[in-house]
Nucleic acid binder design. Sequence first.
DNA 1: TAATGAAAGTTGTCGCGACAACCGATTCTC
DNA 2: GAGAATCGGTTGTCGCGACAACTTTCATTA
Lengths: 179, 179
Amino acid sequence: MDTPWLDRRQLRAWIRLRAVLELLPGVLDAQLRHDSDITEFEYFVLAVLSEAPERTLRMTELAARTNATLPRLSHVVARMERRELVERFPCPEDRRATNARMARAGWDTLRRAAPGHVATVRHHVIDALTDEQVDQLADICEALLARLDPSGTMSAIYTRHDEPGGEEPTPGEGRTGDP
Amino acid sequence: MDTPWLDRRQLRAWIRLRAVLELLPGVLDAQLRHDSDITEFEYFVLAVLSEAPERTLRMTELAARTNATLPRLSHVVARMERRELVERFPCPEDRRATNARMARAGWDTLRRAAPGHVATVRHHVIDALTDEQVDQLADICEALLARLDPSGTMSAIYTRHDEPGGEEPTPGEGRTGDP
DNA sequence: TAATGAAAGTTGTCGCGACAACCGATTCTC
DNA sequence: GAGAATCGGTTGTCGCGACAACTTTCATTA
């Protein structure tokens, strides 16, 4: 338990990361709430569902892919269901399980929200960095996630560093693809 | 408004950063709540106060240095005052203003909480990265903060890249210093 | 084939943060 | 020097997330 203190350079990094942690989520959330009346987390739920086969996923799987606890996801999906963004129905194979499927309005919402959201992400993250830094950031976050999310459910999707891609239907958030 | 989509590499970085944003604060918060019965934000408030002259700061200044809005800080400090971690008193020079001063119990709490908190930060952030990555992370976050916090109140403290230090009384979170 | 334990979700309560409204003090300006 | 605008801070309300029960279903095994 005799942990060495942080030296000056480490402290610089930590203080700044902490500030980013404090500020960035609020900015993203505010933009989406204001422009599309959804949370950043709700956006992400829709984005993940949109990439799943049948636009359907079991609650547990959806929770894992969105880094949410099951209770949290349950609440969120309940609220989204009221707004008819998604719908839930019991899973045939396992009667304990529940499937969440993206509804029509959810798809429309996602589609309309995407451009503004991507623009915000670009402006506050991607465009603020050099290409090299973007890659560094990916590696750094991967290293952090190894400790934060040992099962790596989320990072798993993008852990294949290379591979010019093609197997999955262009994973990612939302995407511009037409119906 | 015709923003280009994110390419594969950018998406990798963003998805992972998003995951870190989602998971890391919870981990830090849980550790401090569990071990010391304070929020990570409360810890930071105490840490910032501990480095101020007289361990005292005006609410506005404290808000700026902790990246908090004034209403939020007001609520937090009110709660902390009830637990006698800090105390508030009107500012003599400007009768609109309020000073927040760290109280004895606040200092004790910070002192006891620090080792565990630092260990958690080390384990989940610093030790997960190479020295080079730590520096990269600092630069990346600085770039992001330029857009998130244009006034740069917080980053300002550590913006002097080089300088072997010495002027300020070892700024940073808490610190091991004896009374 | 009971019985025990684990998994999948839901629900309820509580605390924190965002936002808006508000008030007193202060500075500006004509 | 009397408004008007602004600053500094507090308070109230609301929504979301954490955590802890709890229910139902499935898996194990004795």
